[in-house]
Write a protein that binds this DNA or RNA. Structure first.
Lengths: 145, 145
DNA sequence: GTCAATTGGTAAGGTAAACTTACCAATTGA
DNA sequence: TCAATTGGTAAGTTTACCTTACCAATTGAC
């Protein structure tokens, strides 16, 4: 029809749209499971929080954001009851951020939502295609070469 | 090593990381070509602006953002000399947003940057894989089914 | 052992890119 | 003709970050 297909079909836009759609799907599954109040940003925390707990500064480093920004995310999640901060017995300055029971439940629900969104994708594209997609993206990131 | 690979290798994160990396590459090519001052946001404008010009409200509708937000993007690009606004002879309220010569040059550079970033990807993954990737993403979006 | 440098964390304020609510003026249509 | 719709602007808010500037605890060089 027109030679302006690049507007919709350039890889950048396709990647972006797919990323947003997937994320929205995951968030929707979480909301349906009763876990609202947390958004995409907070995944920066949960993604980097060890089950044994992690220091704020280390969380910030892993998420590649400032201590202040990570501090704010943690503060929000603490206020909602997902996290708890304990003093580090090794270092009087430090805090150890940990999941509460509610936080652990949220994490479980998050991983389930992730699996479901991925299953939705597989239902649409086929499992083999999803596997190939994952491998392509990993290679693009530089995982294997 | 650990069974927590989902943190790095879930499709959502892979899509997001790839989208950001691709976008950064495109913006970098543009900057090297002397086109700085415009960021990823402004692509919301150029992506939806017809060569014959488009009304602000229509731009906002296509980009799925508010008239005010689109108005601000257009104002910025106008200030930098990429766009011009003409009165619509058909409607005294309306303006028609158009590329200036500088804007047209920018668009050309943008498309070139897009092609280069895609070529970079093909150099890493192979052209066939990029094609498969594109098709997968189009199907995920719902293009074909 | 002491004291300067480093490190964990907070405070205050700024910025970018969106949003909402509230308008005005031109147009359209019943 | 006049009320509803539409194109666009204004003002202020929100989200998710950032920077600069700190303080207090710890560490390390001497």
């Amino acid at each position: 029809m027109r030679d302006e297909a690049w507007r919709r079909d350039n890889i950048g836009r396709l990647l972006n749209d797919a990323a947003r759609a997937f994320e929205a799907q995951v968030l929707d599954y979480l909301a349906r499971a009763g876990h609202d109040g947390l958004g995409a940003t907070h995944i920066n925390v949960t993604r980097n929080l060890d089950s044994a707990g992690t220091r704020l500064t280390e969380l910030a480093r892993r998420a590649a954001m400032t201590k202040q920004s990570m501090g704010e995310l943690v503060r929000q999640m603490e206020a909602l009851g997902y996290l708890r901060r304990d003093a580090d017995p090794q270092d009087g300055r430090a805090q150890i951020v940990r999941f509460t029971a509610k936080g652990a439940a949220w994490l479980k629900a998050f991983r389930r939502a992730l699996r479901r969104a991925e299953a939705d994708m597989a239902a649409r594209l086929g499992a083999g295609t999803v596997l190939a997609l994952r491998q392509s993206l990993q290679r693009y990131r530089g995982d294997v070469l």
